[in-house]
Amino acid sequence: MLKLNDIAKTFNPGTVNEKKALDGVKLHLAPGDFVTVVGSNGAGKSTLFHAIAGVFFPDRGSIVLDGEEITFKPEYQRSRQLGRLFQDPMKGTAPHMTIEENLALAYLRTAKHQHAYFSRTGKADRAFFRDQLARLDMGLEDRMKQPVGLLSGGQRQALTLLMSTMVPPKILLLDEHTAALDPGTAEKVLKITREVVAEHKITTMMVTHNMHQALELGSRTLMMDSGRIVLDVQGEERKNMTVNDLLERFKARVGEDLDNDRILLS
């Protein structure tokens, strides 16, 4: 589904602030893979997501999504096939627009609507949105005319998740999307994530700082360090792995402890 061939990116080249953010990343995801990504501070996890999403173009290498080379495709064009959630729940929705209007925007991604500039939200669309909202089980289906700015962070993140998966994307990038939520809400958003991803078999990558979650969720775990993927475990090997094993493996590979001030071991 997704192929990264030797992706490299250096920020501020030739200056004192030069930073090798990605250093020859090679990755091949099969359709339906659910990958968790862990790593130290500044290991390049978010940068990797940005490269895939097209926030910047890589210095070297190529990106292939579902057989189509997208290395230099602009960000907004990739977004039709790619769903993204950020840590900040405020980033994914427009606060002064209503829930319904936000959903209508997300619906733009469908082929039917891409060039229907002057079409308006109809009854059928509204019923569909209502249905989708009801699945979140947050009572949002009765608040469709309210501006999104009135919702809580958790509700906004759940809504963003719904918006990015309503038209199933080819790949879903979750950049610590539950990290800024309180534990109860985080649990709920995670549960919805699991259900949605499983239902549509969406190929998913998720950055997390929760080591336990990294092993428990999904089908594959990547560890990153200094812009490289240093560990890639899946299948039987991963099933029998504990958090301690994972940390040991990281240490053996990198030569130092996983250094992350936000890490959660339990």
Binding site: Y76, Q77, S79, F86, D88, G92, A94, L108, R109, M163
Partner: peptide, 10 residues
């Protein structure tokens, strides 16, 4: 309303 959102949508 939200430049971040627009960048991540289509």
């Amino acid at each position: 309303d939200n430049a971040d959102m627009v960048r991540a949508s289509s």
